[in-house]
Amino acid sequence: MLPAGSILFSSRAPIGYIAIAGNELCTNQGFKSVIPNPEIVNSHFLYYLLSYEKNRIAEMGSGTTFM
């Protein structure tokens, strides 16, 4: 289970959808999920950083069925 405030980044079909979990949840293999340490990084900062970099991250994807 991921706690509220976790960052969810879709890693397939399509790459780059980003959200902040509003409550405890779980995801599947189609997400890269990050639990930020609030003493080091703010969830909203990480959300906006990934939003800014999502095109560059998508360009790094490779694969036959899913990038």
Rank of each mutant, 00 (worst) to 15 (best):
E24S: 07
I15P: 04
M1Q: 12
S51H: 08
P36N: 04
H44A: 06
I7R: 11
G30C: 06
I20K: 12
I7K: 14
I35W: 00
N37G: 00
G5C: 10
H44Q: 10
G30S: 14
I20M: 13
F9E: 13
K32I: 15
G61R: 02
I18C: 07
C26A: 06
G63Y: 04
E24G: 00
N42F: 01
P38Q: 02
K54S: 15
P3N: 08
N42W: 00
A21C: 11
T65A: 14
F66Q: 09
T65I: 15
L49T: 11
L50C: 08
L46N: 10
V41P: 00
G63A: 04
G61S: 15
M67R: 12
K54A: 08
S10A: 15
R12V: 10
T27M: 05
I15H: 02
F9I: 12
E24F: 01
E59V: 00
G30H: 09
C26Q: 03
I7H: 14
I18V: 15
F45M: 04
N55I: 14
G30L: 07
T27P: 00
L50W: 04
L2G: 07
I20C: 07
A4R: 10
H44N: 04
L2W: 06
S33T: 15
L49F: 15
F45L: 14
M1G: 05
N42Q: 05
S10I: 07
A4I: 04
G22D: 12
F31H: 11
K32P: 00
A4P: 13
T27F: 13
F45H: 07
T65P: 01
R56I: 13
L46Y: 03
G16Q: 03
S33C: 10
A13P: 00
S62H: 10
P3Q: 05
S10L: 08
F66A: 03
G61E: 06
S43I: 04
C26H: 10
Y48T: 09
S6F: 11
T27A: 06
G22F: 05
G22C: 03
L2T: 06
F66M: 10
G22R: 14
E39Q: 04
N37A: 01
T27Y: 13
M67D: 13
L2Q: 03
Y52L: 12
S33N: 09
E39P: 00
G22A: 08
A58D: 14
S6M: 11
S62K: 13
S6L: 11
E59P: 00
Y17A: 05
E53I: 02
Q29F: 05
Y48F: 14
A19W: 09
N42E: 08
P38G: 00
S51C: 10
S33Y: 05
P36L: 02
Y52H: 15
